[in-house]
Design a protein around this nucleic acid. Sequence first.
DNA 1: CTGAAAGCGCTTACAG
DNA 2: CTGAAAGCGCTTACAG
Lengths: 358, 358
Amino acid sequence: MAHDREAPASVDRRQGSLTMRDIARLANVSSKSVSLVVNGLPGVGDETRARIEALIAEHGYVPQARAQGLATGRAFLVGHVYNNPNPEYLITMQQGLLDGLEGTGYALVTFPLDRAHPQFTERLREFVSRHRLDGVVFSSSVAEDERLDPLLADLRVPYVRVASTAVDVPERSVVGVDRDGAVLAGEHLVELGHVRIGMVSGPMSFLSARERRNGFEQALTAAGSPLDDTLVVEGDYTFEAGLQAGQALLDLDDRPTAVFAANDEMAAGVLQAAQRAGLEVPRELTVVGFDDFSIASHVQPRLTTVRIPTRAMGHLAILTLLETQTGATDRGQARDTPSPELVVRETSAPAVSPEGPR
Amino acid sequence: MAHDREAPASVDRRQGSLTMRDIARLANVSSKSVSLVVNGLPGVGDETRARIEALIAEHGYVPQARAQGLATGRAFLVGHVYNNPNPEYLITMQQGLLDGLEGTGYALVTFPLDRAHPQFTERLREFVSRHRLDGVVFSSSVAEDERLDPLLADLRVPYVRVASTAVDVPERSVVGVDRDGAVLAGEHLVELGHVRIGMVSGPMSFLSARERRNGFEQALTAAGSPLDDTLVVEGDYTFEAGLQAGQALLDLDDRPTAVFAANDEMAAGVLQAAQRAGLEVPRELTVVGFDDFSIASHVQPRLTTVRIPTRAMGHLAILTLLETQTGATDRGQARDTPSPELVVRETSAPAVSPEGPR
DNA sequence: CTGAAAGCGCTTACAG
DNA sequence: CTGAAAGCGCTTACAG
């Protein structure tokens, strides 16, 4: 056997990573002092603290989250549960969550879960209780699920839902702006003078789809030209659905002069349907999307759409969650989701009567 | 004070979640037996095992990962470190990782980290050692970084890099098919009879960009019509870059009859440049992309492209990582990344001499 | 301001 | 086949 080098036998024995006790021994103090220093707590003399800090830096010592967690009950982990609606939505949301986590020491654990999964509750329970997460953010339509509340309450884990309406108490909600955004879209079309207006909605089983439709209807009704139900086609938020819905709408004898699609993917599909039908956009058809994801500015002409603050909502979700954590019950003013914005690009034009109505 | 209900005082005291000891007490065994049952280990009588299992199911007991982790040194967490190149790439990769993790009990911790971050090493070290991750997968260009190896070796944490070439030993690599894919694109253009061929490359600081360019060059050279350097424009993988590069290429006196863009985003940009210039695609210009992300089939005409098995690569990365974990040193045959596929859609056409060269 | 000790919820040699 | 006990790496009353 090779001779041991003269390294202190009590240190670095296991896997090259030292423990709090190792640091304590090196500093000639009890591990409690090291713990206090690590956590920035008072109770250690200046000189001792400096010595300990130097040792920590020198050895690159990082306390183990799971040992801290076992002792304190914290996990230093926050979960993100979602069903995948759209890559860009997800990445943007995730980015917002990470914005909020930045500098907090919490890491983000990702857990896709479909509401239709036969073992929905079991899987969620196992995920959350196995890691004893400090909190969970639910985004996309899984956030609307009614099974969340009893389960998470039973598990006693704080959570926040990012959903289209206040599906939960304020401390557990980040409320979307789907309705307001759709109102903007409706007002825009009305202002352009459109009367015969079509809509491609999302799947009505989704709250987001219902809110967007309601907001849109509300704007048209307020302007005195209520939405014509025969001009509404339900899609599933995909490009293909938009394409088909667009074709159906444009095939009508008295086709609409403008179409609002409940997301950009479908709006791009409508645009393509128009182009295939030989219609010039926006002269012969105005198209408005929703979300302002990248596809909106990658199609030709670029889509007028409504920008939704998805990333900000993710950030908000974490702030809300951490507020609960720290027991800051007295949140000064409730945090509001930023407002949606109409982004007018190249698919908007004033209404012209379609030549030869019926 | 309210009277206690007659619940066993020793159970359910803390936060409604019981511990292994609680189950042991209820079953009248030592917690060791419960541990054996939980882990599916032998050493417990059938009758006892059944009794324990029933209790576990009844109370929905789930062992705490961090206590198990502290005792065994495992974290039940795998990290994914990446820099965000493109939402669809990321989500697809992440999906592949989750495919591999399914049923293993490991959770995925997400950690975006830019190579240019001033504290790159420090942040990575802290992330990995704080949670003592069981393994880390690096994807996107951060996987190419040369600082990974010394750091992770020091931390003694297994990892796998998903990169365009074998930047590491086989046990730590999932090797991309960028070069092979680009060869397919080149052969396709050659077969169509194109000679004056342009390329929009990715940023040459990325391995993926260099590989794609090399593969493309290789195919053209093999066909006897080497790539003309003056017809290569470097982009940064964005739509905008493709648009500009496309404009530059099409402005040339003797413009190319076909352009290969190193990803779909840029190809969509090239397509738009062609359309703006009044060129008919594919009759006057053939455009080929790379990746086969959704944008490829959402533009009009739909892009011919090369499908890269991103999700499969993510899956592979986890399999490779877990193989290392379980010390399965004798991997039968090395796992190979599935081959890329040429997907011919609507932007491919045979070459015709551009009218009026020069 | 500091130490010695118990405890967080598991696993695992060590004895029977 | 099963128990009692030590230990994983932290935190935190409890004494000085």
